[in-house]
Design a protein around this nucleic acid. Structure first.
Lengths: 122, 122
DNA sequence: TTACTGTTTCGACACTTGTCGATGTCCTGC
DNA sequence: GCAGGACATCGACAAGTGTCGAAACAGTAA
């Protein structure tokens, strides 16, 4: 059941994860797209998760182990629970190296979400 | 007890929502900013709300009355409930004109949220 | 006034979520 | 082998959320 992928570099198909949904302002969202999109926003709808995500995203080297970011005011199991949610939402990837597990931001997801929020500018 | 609600909306000022928080990738998010930011994402974390918001945002003239957008598969009170949540989050504004209540996207909020997701590395 | 329509609020319910302590798993070092 | 640290999972609980029908509120027209 171990699903620790993404150990490799984004050399394969980096664009594949990006195309989720059209911009919110371009046309009424389909029911299917709304479910997908809501799941991504939901992953960022908790302050603790947002701080964990931000700590990973802003960490030097683009990655951080749990020990680097777990001081956010909740217990260690809760931190692990939130990191799992971010992983399941496709926002973070994880990789075990020796004793530590390193997290990094999944490629393109931030740009994809920003694209959904960006007006057509036309 | 409660007789003034929709027409005059003393909820959140549209301008105040824009300069909310720095990009997630620039630096670890403060606890205070994470709470503010999570609330905005939370408002868009439900498929029904997302569809309602999209219908308002993509409607001609930039506004829509409830009757234009309420066909999203849930009851009308539920629609009203979700619209209230979007209003309270500062994402939508409402105005009553005669029989109908018109909703429109609050200015700047979309750009602000997109800015939080946009990597500073450019 | 009365009747009718559009929208919001109320009250209740099932379900989900965030949190914790205890426990389990994986790896390193002795 | 054993001990210990890093992280994940389990089980349980309080609190929050989405949903509905019923009712109330706001406005229009007869």
């Amino acid at each position: 059941m171990s699903n620790l992928q993404v150990a490799s570099l984004p050399l394969l198909e980096p664009e594949a994860a990006a195309p989720c949904c059209p911009p919110l302002t371009s046309a009424p969202l389909s029911e299917e797209d709304s479910v997908r999109m809501a799941a991504m926003f939901k992953a960022l709808s908790d302050p603790v998760r947002l701080r964990l995500f931000s700590r990973v995203a802003s960490h030097e080297g683009g990655e951080a182990c749990v020990c680097d970011i777990q001081d956010v005011g909740v217990s260690q199991p809760t931190v692990s629970h939130h990191l799992k949610k971010l992983r399941e939402a496709g926002l973070l990837t994880s990789e075990r190296r020796g004793t530590w597990v390193y997290y990094r931001v999944a490629p393109n997801v931030l740009a994809a979400m920003a694209g959904m929020l960006t007006a057509a500018t036309g």
